[in-house]
Simulated assay, not measured.
Amino acid sequence: TAKVTDPEYLAAAKKLSEVVSMGLIGKGALNTNASQAFELLETGQAGMLVNGSWFFNDAAVGGYGDKIGYFEYNPFTDAGKEEATHWTKSGGTGAMGGYGVSAKGKYVEYSKKVLISFLEARDIANAELGSLSVRKEPVKPLEPRAESYQAYADSLDKIESTTKYEWALNNQELITGLEDACELLLTGLSTPEEYIADLEERISMALGE
């Protein structure tokens, strides 16, 4: 029932525009590939990298796992509400996925056993390398995690809420419109008001309204 013209969306766009103007997102950030982004972070030319928690291990392998941290506080919160929103996170929830065995195969039961054995061995190996694990039986990493990764792991049970994004929109015209409008806002090329008006028109066109 929500519409992009609802006041909450404009307020969010204004807050985002404010932090963008303060330098939170660099002008070329949305046109930078992963290798370039890692290099900018490693050489100190970028102060922040938007990524998943798996990057902690990559950073450790690269030799700078103890030189990075993560946003523990919400950078978009209103002044004076920093502590109240400390453990309210944006993003962070995964989607169901994994492997499957065809029910039409000749060796279905055997294949299921092989797959389960593989997944168990993989999860144990990942945990030994320091990755977070949901296994009931704890697996001790072969080497201590990098300081940044351990700090993140220790904070997980403090998180009070996260958000969930829909990654599977099937209207390509709508996806393109959303991406284009967001890029203009995130690079400071459109105002929050222009962003909302642009999105309203793009969504209407994409949905044939």
Rank of each mutant, 00 (worst) to 15 (best):
A2S: 13
K3P: 10
D6Q: 04
D6F: 02
P7S: 00
A12L: 07
L30C: 08
A34Y: 11
Q36T: 12
E39M: 08
D58G: 09
A59V: 09
A60T: 10
Y64P: 08
Y70H: 06
Y73V: 10
Y73R: 12
N74V: 01
P75N: 00
K81C: 07
K81A: 11
A84V: 05
K89H: 06
G91H: 01
T93W: 13
A95G: 12
M96I: 13
G98C: 01
K104Q: 11
G105D: 07
K106E: 11
K106I: 15
Y107S: 06
V108E: 14
S111A: 09
I116T: 14
F118Q: 06
A125E: 10
N126G: 12
L132Y: 05
S133E: 05
K136T: 12
E137A: 08
K140Y: 08
Q150W: 03
Y152R: 03
K158M: 12
Y165A: 15
E166Q: 14
E166T: 15
A168C: 13
A168L: 13
G177L: 06
L178R: 07
L178V: 13
E179D: 13
L186T: 02
L186W: 10
T191H: 01
E193K: 04
E193H: 04
E200R: 06
R202V: 03
S204L: 14
